[in-house]
Amino acid sequence: MIQPLRRTHRAIFFVLGIALPVLFIGGLLARHAPLSAVQPVEDKLAQTNGGTEFVLNHGSSKFTVRLVESRKGEAQREFLVIPSSGFLAPDVFLYWSETQPGASISPNAKLLGKLGPGELYRIPSVSGGYFVLYSVAQNEVLGSIPVGAAT
């Protein structure tokens, strides 16, 4: 290389030597913490006629899901599961699991359908369990909502 090019290279790598590690470390520090599937439900915000809101941890941010029981039947109960507008993950499917899920979906979990507003999800009323929110795109359990047995 000729000397001007060598000088240019030195200047470029002086800048890159500072900027890229800062970008790399900054990017890693900004990562959302992994979702907690063991204790996904932080608290119940409100018991209202419009249902029950649950706050699910998503690293440093949170999102809410509102659970509305629309009908109680003898054999089955029917729910609306309404995510907040700031819901982060795409392609979220809803499962019903009688056991609390870990990091992955239980083999016995039952697929109820794609999560979306206006969808009704039916579950057996005889025992309690968990609605499990599962992201197909991220291949992970986003959180779970406990549902008690029908009284």
Binding site: L16, A19, L23, F24, G27, L28, A30, R31
Partner: peptide, 14 residues
């Protein structure tokens, strides 16, 4: 190269 470091760090590694 700088763009790809950003692409990987802010994409896959997130």
């Amino acid at each position: 190269y700088a763009s790809l470091i950003g692409h990987v760090t802010l994409g896959l590694l997130q």
